[in-house]
Computed example of a mutant assay.
Amino acid sequence: MLTGKEREVLVQVAAGASNAEIAAALYMSEATVKTQVSRILAKPGLANRVQAAILADQAGFPDRVRAGRHQVRAR
C-alpha cells in the first residue's frame, strides 16, 4: 500500500519525470524523491521505474499520467 505522497511521486514517475522534475513539481528535495522512488519500487518488488510506470497504468492511475510529463502536476 502506497502512501499519498508515494502515489503523487508514482504519477510523476509514470509520466516520465526525472527526480529533479518531480522534486520541483512536488516541492521536495531530490533526496526525498529518491527515497520515495526506492520505497515505491521496494513495496511491490519492482526492479525499475519502467515497471513502476506499467504498474501505475495497470492500476488505473489518473489519466494525466498519459498526458505527458510536462503537463503533469500533482495536487
Rank of each mutant, 00 (worst) to 15 (best):
E30I: 13
N48L: 07
R69P: 01
A59M: 14
A25G: 13
L41Q: 04
V13A: 07
A47W: 01
V50S: 12
V65K: 02
R39N: 12
L10R: 11
E8L: 08
D57Y: 14
G45S: 10
R69F: 13
Q51C: 07
A14Y: 01
G60K: 06
R7G: 09
R69G: 08
T35Y: 11
I40K: 01
A23I: 07
S29Y: 04
A74Q: 07
R49I: 08
E8W: 05
G60W: 11
R64S: 08
G4Y: 02
S29H: 12
G60V: 02
L55C: 09
S29G: 13
V50Y: 12
A31Q: 09
V13M: 15
E21I: 12
A25C: 04
L26T: 00
L41V: 05
R69Q: 09
G16K: 01
R7H: 13
G60Q: 05
G45C: 10
L41E: 07
E8G: 09
L26G: 00
K43G: 08
S38A: 09
A67E: 14
S18V: 05
V65F: 00
Q51K: 15
M1G: 14
E30T: 11
Q12V: 03
A53R: 15
S38C: 04
A56V: 07
Q36L: 05
K5A: 02
V37S: 08
I54R: 10
I40D: 01
G60S: 01
T32D: 05
S38G: 15
E21K: 15
Q58E: 03
A31R: 11
R39F: 06
S29N: 08
I54K: 09
M1N: 10
A20V: 08
E6M: 10
E6V: 04
V13E: 08
A25E: 06
S29I: 07
R75V: 14
Y27P: 02
A56G: 11
L26Q: 00
M1V: 15
L41F: 04
L10K: 15
R49P: 08
A53W: 07
A24S: 13
R7P: 01
Q36P: 00
S29M: 08
G16H: 05
T32M: 02
M28C: 00
G45D: 07
G4S: 06
A31C: 07
A59C: 03
A52L: 14
P44D: 04
A59H: 03
A17C: 15
P44Y: 03
R7A: 14
I40T: 04
P62K: 06
H70F: 15
V13C: 13
R49G: 13
A59T: 02
R75A: 14
V65D: 00
N48Y: 03
I40A: 10
S18Y: 11
R66Y: 05
A56D: 06
V33C: 01
F61G: 06
L41M: 03
F61R: 06
I54C: 04
R39C: 09
M1S: 14
L55Q: 09
V37F: 09
S38I: 00
D57F: 06
R7Q: 11
E6L: 10
K5T: 02
R39H: 12
L10T: 08
Q58P: 02
R69D: 03
R49N: 09
L41S: 12
L41C: 11
Q36K: 02
L10C: 01
S18L: 06
L26R: 01
V13F: 11
Q51N: 04
A17N: 12
E8A: 13
Q58K: 06
A31E: 09
A24D: 05
A52F: 15
G68W: 03
R66N: 04
K43I: 12
